[in-house]
Design a protein around this nucleic acid. Sequence first.
DNA 1: GTCTATAAGCAGATAGAC
DNA 2: GTCTATCTGCTTATAGAC
Lengths: 189, 189
Amino acid sequence: MAWNNEHKKKTREKILTSAARLFAQNGFDHIGINDVMKDAGLTRGAFYAHFSSKAELYAESIITAAMSTGRKTDPLNPEAPSFDGLLKTYLSMEHRQGNLFRCPLAFLTTDITQRDDQVRDAYTRVFKGFVNNLDKHSVQQNGTKDTIRSMQQAVMLIGGLAIARAINDDELAKELLSSCHAALATPTI
Amino acid sequence: MAWNNEHKKKTREKILTSAARLFAQNGFDHIGINDVMKDAGLTRGAFYAHFSSKAELYAESIITAAMSTGRKTDPLNPEAPSFDGLLKTYLSMEHRQGNLFRCPLAFLTTDITQRDDQVRDAYTRVFKGFVNNLDKHSVQQNGTKDTIRSMQQAVMLIGGLAIARAINDDELAKELLSSCHAALATPTI
DNA sequence: GTCTATAAGCAGATAGAC
DNA sequence: GTCTATCTGCTTATAGAC
């Protein structure tokens, strides 16, 4: 691969990294192409050499954001936390704040509903991967795979965090996250 | 009260009814003041005689949307469904579509996170009312009140519907809603 | 209170120089 | 590939006639 192509790939990844963080924290409509490019150290005009539209960038940024947090939920990754560690990290007040990492499934849930199929496809793929990871945890723990149970766990994690982020009451948010944790940590959910 | 004031109140309610439906279905940024006023049979200029800003309208519309669906979750309302009826209605594919009624807690979850305190206060109040209603159902069924359990139920209902609306796969959405229903209907959740 | 007209600003996308 | 400049269209909010 020529040096130019290598450089273009690096630039594209830099744009995606900025977009993944900014979009997850602020949503599609509050972030302009200008904001993303500025964050990546470029100007607006250079954007269309890498992506054909804002929606395409958004769709790809969802995958990027998911991968950067997904490593922490993958039981096959030796550095990944245990299932109990995942619960604690995912349902933490730090995750609610979103400064360290941001699961796009919880940060962008209803934002996705307003977008085109390109974006919704990306979100759906990430959700399926999330459930699949919970299946793997289940096999590790119980030796059995129960996808219905994994979907319930996914809803408790994603939904709990999304609601905790929406409500304007830190104490209630803490209680809510702790309730979700309790529902998942106890064997008899 | 003079006729003029009575008329103004009616007009205000008409605007709120339109806003509650349009905002819940499309989110804050996809609906303009023009859309709301047109739907209410008025023009843009008349808006500021009733509300001081778009955000104020949005906050009030969340309360309106919640009340119009909340009647169906209130056990003290004789026309309200049973707890099992609530589960079935709330977690239905019809609710996912949003043509009949739209719970703002599930339709606007991450949308709220981007707004000012005025809006987030309204959402928080509605959420507390939702949990309170689940508490009442619990007392009716078991004779005991368990707010932690009610919050878990709220997350399963709101989160399940919100995710089902985001994903672009009808079959998966059906399985997801059915999984949430199963988690809540079984005594050993 | 409601209307039309308009102010003032911002966004996505494109054109053309380098 | 990246830049600056610009086109085009949209939005919230206000001014002033009726």
